[in-house]
Design a protein around this nucleic acid. Sequence first.
DNA 1: TTAATTTAAAATGTATACATTTTTTGTCAA
DNA 2: TTGACAAAAAATGTATACATTTTAAATTAA
Lengths: 213, 213
Amino acid sequence: MLKKQQLYQQLKQDIQLQHWAPAQVLTQQQLAAHYSVSRIVVRDAQQQLISEGWLSAHGKAGMQVAPFSVAEAEELCMLRLQLEPLALRLAASELSFSQLGQAEDVLRQLAQQTNMPSYQRGELNWQFHRLLYQPCGKVHLLRLLDQLHQQVARYLGYQEQVLAYTDTSAAEHQQLINLLRQRQTDAACHLLQQHICDASALLTQHLKNRQGA
Amino acid sequence: MLKKQQLYQQLKQDIQLQHWAPAQVLTQQQLAAHYSVSRIVVRDAQQQLISEGWLSAHGKAGMQVAPFSVAEAEELCMLRLQLEPLALRLAASELSFSQLGQAEDVLRQLAQQTNMPSYQRGELNWQFHRLLYQPCGKVHLLRLLDQLHQQVARYLGYQEQVLAYTDTSAAEHQQLINLLRQRQTDAACHLLQQHICDASALLTQHLKNRQGA
DNA sequence: TTAATTTAAAATGTATACATTTTTTGTCAA
DNA sequence: TTGACAAAAAATGTATACATTTTAAATTAA
């Protein structure tokens, strides 16, 4: 087992779940002690997390957990809005019925297992979207979308129910599948755009309220 | 002086200039010896370059210089085509006359100093574009565009004159400035789109010819 | 000769140790 | 008290050393 990769995953998740607070300053030693690994391992993970935007170099000493900002959240949503419909458009003609079925399976999971922790619900939600984009075959685009999703996920604050998977969302997802199965690509892309747009508005409004409080 | 950062820059440039060939497999020790640093330093740089797509993990041992593929080049161009006009649109209303003047200065440099090595011409060309996007204020988008440009730059193969800065390109750049100065945002974005589209076509065609030869 | 298994070499992952830089603390003078 | 300067503590950058894994080689049996 590669400790490096383990620590990378763990640390990223801990940031995502806000076990390390936004804007908090961490030291290599602190993390090495906390996770019981040597500083070398911390450095490797740190490097990767910095270049993915989870951490930022903090002056000459220490690293800072990426702080929250409404502006950044809006930017991330904007990028999703720009790129996900593109990915879907490229993937649409390649999407096999079996793949569409797979995506539907994920939807069913979401609908049935209602007592799942919201962290997992978020993951499943992305898995659904990801399955639809996958066949576009653009590695850079897909990697980028993965990163965007993870960054947005930070802002969702998984303990909140407000932004969880709603009935409306479920219906839209099903409709998306239907459109794709009928090869109505334009309509599907448009629906997706609307879907992301709504989710973005919900998120940014929520953040603004929270900031005010 | 941080050796880590130095090596990162140097190694990236060496890959860009194809001193390390595409698809070549490198070892940490090899690089440590070649650049006269310890393996730790190599690891730090390696990690960063992997997550930016210059290198890829190669099985369990070694790293591979990202190979060339026409498909990847096309994808990178597509992403530029999707994102740069967006950045320009967001920046357009914020662009001050002084900033437009700065961009024009870069154009003049390109026009006058005709004996510049093509590597530097490429850099100046990007500097011009970058100045126009900067005021959009979207850090993720700008970082992304920087990375895209650098990756595309690999494919340009700076020794070639074919893809160098042409008169047509110069004229289009100037026209872009004029449109922006008159706040004709839509026209400017459209011109930019055309500009990138042409450059992309030139590049991919060139790659396809090269592959056939 | 060839295939397979064992053995040696090399490369990476990780830890520890040292050097340098940065930050903090503490003392002393104004 | 405050400000500046010096000393010490802490954190990071880098190197070396060790352990583990992976690759290559070599020896042996069929």
